[in-house]
Design a protein around this nucleic acid. Structure first.
Length: 274
DNA sequence: GTTGAGCGTT
């Protein structure tokens, strides 16, 4: 499961059924419901007749049902139902799994959830463990319900069980479809730097001349940062020390602007005037 | 029974 959706309570009709239209009002594009059989663990579909969803034999029960979407256009749903406020909001503010590295060996999923609960509700918290011994591998994943929570979490460093941990978008979630995520910064001119406005209000850009070593993009809002931390995966050239620096800089919290050291492909964040 | 950069059995 790559996306986590906030559970929504759906009202029943007087006869105990649920109208598919009620479901689609909350989950546009939905075509049905299913749930997981608590005994067999199989997913089972909810009976759907002429737009009416009928409860399982044992009743709806106190279960969380999963919304089904048509297989073919599952991915296109956001575009096809552009009128939906829900979809638009999700498209803009969809949360992502975050990887948390450098966890103490003793930190449990409960510990992790408890720590992050101070920032907001998590939909998923995982510690990756050795399948044989069950011991932590020292890293895990977390996905928050609210994008605002993700922003807050990514904008600062985290001391978990007395150890500073690293966090970033996992490689599997760094979608290559956004041009700025894969563009090499040294290819960009000032005009193109303004494209960073897709991440937030840009108040200034400049490239240092004549050396063109630095480019600087200044955002009106420091909270913009998490949207493009993933650029830090631009690989430094054959220098492991640089790589460490890269991680270090990307973890700095309060930022007023972001600078790109163009020649080294390394992103530096700084706070110029505090 | 150990470790310390990394990228998720379902």
């Amino acid at each position: 499961i790559s996306e986590y959706i906030r559970p929504v309570e759906i009202p029943l009709e007087d006869d105990g059924t649920v109208l598919l239209s009620t479901v689609t009002a909350h989950f546009p594009g939905a075509c049905g419901l299913c749930d997981r059989n608590p005994v067999s663990q199989c997913m089972r579909g909810v009976r759907l007749v002429e737009g009416i969803l009928h409860a399982p034999d044992a009743g709806w029960g106190n279960l969380v049902y999963v919304v089904n979407y048509p297989k073919d256009n599952k991915r296109n749903m956001d575009e096809t139902d552009a009128s939906s406020v829900v979809n638009v909001k999700r498209a803009v503010q969809k949360t992502s799994d975050l990887i948390v590295l450098g966890l103490p060996w003793t930190t449990t999923e409960q510990d992790l959830e408890e720590y992050f609960s101070a920032f907001g509700e998590a939909l998923m918290v995982q510690i990756k463990k050795d399948t044989k011994t069950g011991h932590s591998k020292g890293f895990g994943f977390v996905c928050f319900m609210a994008y605002e929570t993700q922003v807050k979490v990514m904008s600062q460093q985290h001391m978990i069980d007395e150890q500073w941990c690293d966090h970033k978008l996992p490689n599997s979630k760094q979608s290559p479809d956004k041009p700025l995520r894969s563009r090499k910064v040294f290819d960009m001119n000032e005009d193109e730097l303004w494209q960073f406005c897709q991440y937030g209000e840009v108040v200034d850009v400049f490239i240092l001349k004549p050396f063109r070593v630095f480019a600087c993009v200044t955002f009106a809002d420091d909270q913009v940062l998490p949207s493009f931390i993933h650029i830090s995966y631009a690989e430094p050239k054959h220098n492991s020390n640089r790589k460490k620096e890269c991680c270090k800089y990307s973890a700095i919290g309060i930022l007023l602007s972001t600078c790109f050291l163009i020649q080294e492909f390394v992103i530096m964040h700084h706070r110029p005037c505090l």
